[in-house]
Every structure is written in structure tokens, then in C-alpha cells.
Amino acid sequence: MNRETEITFKESAAAAARTARRADLGHSARQWLGYAAAYGFMTVLALLFMIPLLWMFSTSLKSRQEIFAWPPDWIPTSPQWFNYASAFEKYPLARFMLNSAFLVIANTIGELISVPLIAFAFARLRFPGKRILFVLMLSTMMLPGQIKLIPLFSMFSRLKMIGTYWPLILPSFFGNPFFIFLMVQYIRTIPRELDEAARMDGASTWTILYRIILPLSRPAITVLVVFTFLWTWNDFLQPLIYLSSFDSYPISVGLAFFQGRYSVEWNLFMAATLISIIPVLVLYFFAQRHLIGGISSLGLKG
């Protein structure tokens, strides 16, 4: 936009604002009506979206007879809070969730060791071959994971690691390309003057990384931790392939085998399912700003 058009543009905008102010009364009534309509519509839509979760919650509080009542009760006549205790008693839920928590912690440690180091090299250091390596790294993000499953399975089986957590943990120590990319993007926004000043004062490369860059990268680290939690907690195919004993399953795989393993009691199943998603929901409510920021900037998905 050149200067002249910009000026005319501003003038016409100001004129439009004046007209709008003159018609303020009628405008605001219409605006309020618009607000009301928007809120009404959004609320109905949001409720519609929440029916599945609300229904699951309602079912989890019903007795065995009440879940088959017709017409169904939307709100349980006498909420059976005891169902939650029964779910923990009947199914090894606590065990599964501890297994998942262990995997989350191990993967987080792995990513925290590898990702900042790798991202720092890509974002800040100069070295021959940087462009090619960076493009290679980005291209691995696009690759569908299923093509790697069979060779990796056979590799881990040669290493006698099938049935252990190693295949689910080891890869995180070599850096997830999504997180590396995220971190590189973030480090690039930190002013280089900080590095240079530190270097003048005689700081080594590693001091700069761990004393200056890393403390300033808290937002990116948060996104990394949140997504590692989410992906590890929800991962299904990999633990399904690599683990063999029921007791070692993380919550995702454990839950999937409920139907075959236990008699079908939907009130308890729904209580167990709800319990299984509570950690994710809690994390979501506390970290949603970072989570949504991560999705918006990278297109990462939940």
C-alpha cells in the first residue's frame, strides 16, 4: 500500500466511524441481538459436543439395572459414586496408569536431554552441511511411521527388548523432529546479542546453551513437555506391538482389552474410561494456552 492510498484509506475509515457513531443507538441494539444469537447458538453447539462426555459421566454413576432403563435417566436417580472405587478394584487401573506415567516421565527426560542440544546446533552454530542436515531432519517429519514398524520390531527383538519398555523410550533420546523444529524456531527469536555478549565474557558454547538459551526457552520447553505427555499417554499402536504381558500395559492398551478380558459392565467401563482421561483433561486445562499455541504455530495435533 503506498502513502496516498493509505491516507485516503484512513480518511474513509474515519468517515465510516463517524457515521457509525451517529447511528450508535440502533447499532448497539442490533449488536446486542447479534451477541445473544451468537452466544445462544454457540452454547447449544457446545452442549451437543459435550453430550458424549456428559453421557459417559452419567453412565458411570448408574447402577447395573439403571443403565438399561428405558427411557433412560439423564441424571442417575441415586448416583453410585462407589462405581469409581469398584473400577479401581476390579481392573488394574492404577497399575496401567502408573505404567503410562513411567513412560511419560522417561520420554520427557529423553526429549529434554536431546532436543535442546540438537535444536541449539541447528539454530545457532555454523558448520558445513547445515542446510542439508536440516532439510533431512524436516523431511523425516513428513514420513508416515508405519513403514518403520517391521524393521524396528525385528531390531528390538534381536536386542531382546520385546516385552520391555525400551522400544517405547529409547527413540526419545535421539530427538523428535517435531520438537527439534519447534525449538529451532523458538531459539531463532532469541536475540543473538545475548550469545555474543556472553562469548565476549569468555562463556563456552555449552554455557551459552544451558545458562542463556535454555532458561529463555521456557515456553517452547513447556510445549514439548505437554505434547510428550499427550502423545505418550494416548499412544496405542507401539505399546500394543512391543509389550506382551497384561500387567505391563499402559492405560491406552489396557483399556482396549477390557471387553475381551472382563464381563461387559458399561457403568464400570465408563468409570474406568473417564478415570483414564482425567490426567489428560487436567493437563489440558492448565496448559491449554501453550497447547493451542503449539498447534497453531506447528500444526501439531493432539
Partner: peptide
């Protein structure tokens, strides 16, 4: 916040819920 909730829940939990 509300509309994004379904996207963070695991596929297994969502599957069991929709089955019901």
C-alpha cells in the same frame, strides 16, 4: 476450550465411549 477437548482424548477412550 470446550470444542478442543475431544482432540486431546486418546483414541481408545473415544472408541469405548462411542461404542456405548
Amino acid at each position: 476450550t470446550v470444542f478442543y477437548i475431544p482432540a486431546v482424548i486418546s483414541g481408545v477412550a473415544v472408541s469405548l465411549m462411542w461404542m456405548w
